[in-house]
């Protein structure tokens, strides 16, 4: 009997401290991510110096060579490690409008909205990203947030993250002998 009383007392004490969630207003199910295609606030694409607009070099009257080949006149630095077996430049870059990307449907997409292009194959990541759960976000948890484009973190031509150097470990605690 005493043991039971003690256990009850302990239980009561334990619960006295907790701030129970007040669900009196009812629990609303989690909201879905903003709809696909929603224009989201992102910083401008991270073009390398002097690369954009592409039409500066790719003039409209330049003949288009659609053949998969080893590039020799420009862009040799690009190593395609993104399903290279099946992909080629013009699957994403538009041959008729060089300053634009295109979806599989042919619909043109500006570089500012490249996430729509990535989202065609990576639908689950695209959905998580719209909800703020895939990728890095900054700003206000209760308001204006800044999203990053997929290409701010992933190199579109080789999207897998390269390993990085960790910051130094904490010192091990000193032990007295």
């Amino acid at each position: 009997m005493l043991a039971l009383a003690l256990a009850l007392a302990a239980w009561a004490c334990g619960h006295g401290n907790a701030h129970e969630l007040d669900l009196s207003a009812g629990w609303v199910p989690a909201a879905d991510a903003p709809a696909a295609g929603t224009k989201l606030h992102t910083p401008p694409p991270p073009f390398s110096e002097g690369i954009f607009p592409c039409s500066e070099c790719h003039e409209p009257d330049m003949p288009v060579n659609t053949k998969r080949r080893e590039l020799s006149m420009a862009h040799q630095e690009i190593v395609l490690k993104h399903d290279a077996e099946h992909r080629w430049c013009l699957d994403c870059h538009d041959a008729t409008d060089r300053d634009s990307l295109h979806l599989a449907s042919g619909e043109k997409v500006p570089f500012e909205e490249s996430y729509r292009l990535c989202g065609q194959c990576h639908g689950d990541k695209y959905r998580d990203w719209r909800a703020g759960v895939h990728g890095r976000r900054s700003g206000q948890w209760d308001g204006e947030k800044e999203y990053l484009l997929c290409v701010h973190c992933h190199n579109s031509h080789a999207p897998k993250f390269a390993p990085i150097k960790p910051l130094p470990p904490p010192p091990k605690p000193e032990r007295t002998p």
Binding site: L21, A131, V133, D142
Partner: peptide
């Protein structure tokens, strides 16, 4: 966090990242 592994928000807001995680992951 460079890989965006960390999420924070209000549990009572159904549109928060945190609720999305609890609901879908």
């Amino acid at each position: 966090c460079p890989v965006g592994a960390r999420k924070f928000g209000n549990l009572l807001d159904p549109s928060s990242e945190i609720r999305y995680v609890l609901d879908k992951k």
